[in-house]
């Protein structure tokens, strides 16, 4: 049900833009080619900032890093400086490993109840591997797309492109990342279907981004290798959009080809959906208190910022109030 709902939402989006773009009406194409991309980008940018600022407003009074190594202790006990950092430098290394290599996912375990009954734990790196492959491919594909947004394509993008296509298969050259991202997204989807526990906790909000990204990747692959578009027109439109001078290329929107509008619209949906969804982990990973805090609770006193000034009646004041009665009852007092 959740799968079908997400799937048909993406199908509906594709049909919507397909119906619109095949009309060839210049106002409809202007909507899908100019207005929606701008609106989606603005939603993405403002929504992203809003979400991060909202997170920033939540106090994190105490140190709550989830650690998995020996914390700093006596000098003769070796500290694990990365898994249990007590300094900012350690936190930076830990965060870098998390952001670039998904260190915590590498620790993923598989738990099985076997005959006996015996509970057994085993290493399970597939999620880590597919996640890493997916994210890195997506990043490389994103960087490759900058050739549409930069007048004179810089050599670093040529370098990435040539490394990505170094197998020199077919024409246009097949990009390795295109194949990798399709395989990885498919794996990440099948995982949610076939592993019962993961299937049970998966929501429509988990399937929708997967289908959306799969749709983007498939439409992109189709556009590059099979259903050709007027690619120079695409770059003219892209350059027009980023230089806020979109009226000139908007005249040639009919020439480009329907598949391009499907690709662009799905990307626009992804951008607009981003701040409202779990995709915000892109910003959230940097704001995770269980990862970005150093474990220095034993060295630094952290005071709760919203502590209310409670009036405390100390023992000294108590003794002041009742000294005579205490003496009369034979109770010991600190001050005579």
């Amino acid at each position: 049900m959740k799968i079908l709902f997400s799937f048909f939402t993406v199908v509906f989006l594709v049909l919507l833009v397909f119906a619109g773009a095949t009309t060839g009406n210049k106002y409809v194409l202007f909507l899908f080619g100019v207005i929606i991309p701008y609106a989606a980008f603005a939603t993405f940018l403002l929504g992203f900032i809003y979400r991060v600022v909202q997170w920033g407003r939540s106090p994190v009074p105490f140190r709550i890093p989830t650690t998995c190594g020996q914390q700093q202790s006596f000098p003769w006990i070796k500290q694990n400086k990365i898994e249990n950092p007590s300094t900012t430098m350690g936190v930076i290394v830990r965060m870098a490993l998390e952001v670039f290599l998904f260190r915590s996912l590498f620790r993923n375990l598989k738990t099985e109840l076997r005959d006996g009954p015996k509970l057994s734990y085993g290493s399970d790196k597939w999620l880590w591997l597919a996640g890493l492959a997916f994210h890195w491919s997506f990043l490389i594909i994103l960087i490759r797309h900058y050739r549409f947004f930069i007048g004179e394509v810089p050599s670093v993008i040529h370098l990435i492109e040539s490394l990505d296509s170094f197998l020199q298969v077919g024409v246009p050259l097949v990009y390795i990342t295109d194949a990798v991202i399709l395989a990885a997204v498919t794996f990440l989807f099948l995982r949610r279907v076939y592993i019962p526990q993961v299937n049970y906790i998966s929501l429509a909000a988990d399937y929708f981004p997967l289908f959306l990204i799969l749709g983007i990747a498939i439409s992109g692959v189709l556009m590059r290798y099979f259903i050709k578009v007027h690619i120079v027109g695409v770059k003219e439109l892209a350059m027009g959009l980023i230089s806020l001078n979109f009226m000139a290329p908007a005249k040639n929107l009919q020439e480009i080809g329907v598949i391009f509008y499907i690709h662009l619209f799905l990307i626009s949906v992804l951008f607009a959906y981003f701040p409202f969804s779990k995709l915000m982990h892109m910003g959230g990973v940097f704001l995770s208190p269980t990862r970005n805090l150093s474990n220095n609770s034993r060295m630094v006193r952290h005071i709760n910022p919203w502590n209310y000034p409670v009036h405390v009646h100390t023992y000294e004041e108590y003794e002041e109030d009742f000294r005579d009665k205490m003496k009369a009852a034979g109770l010991p007092v600190e001050k005579e």
Binding site: F44, L45, I49, V52, F149, G151, I242, S243, F286
Partner: peptide, 18 residues
């Protein structure tokens, strides 16, 4: 500071070609 880096990265094409 992080947000500024983010905005600078995602709006990169807008100011790069100016």
């Amino acid at each position: 500071a992080g947000l500024l880096i983010f905005v600078a990265l995602v709006t990169f094409p807008f100011y790069f070609n100016v």
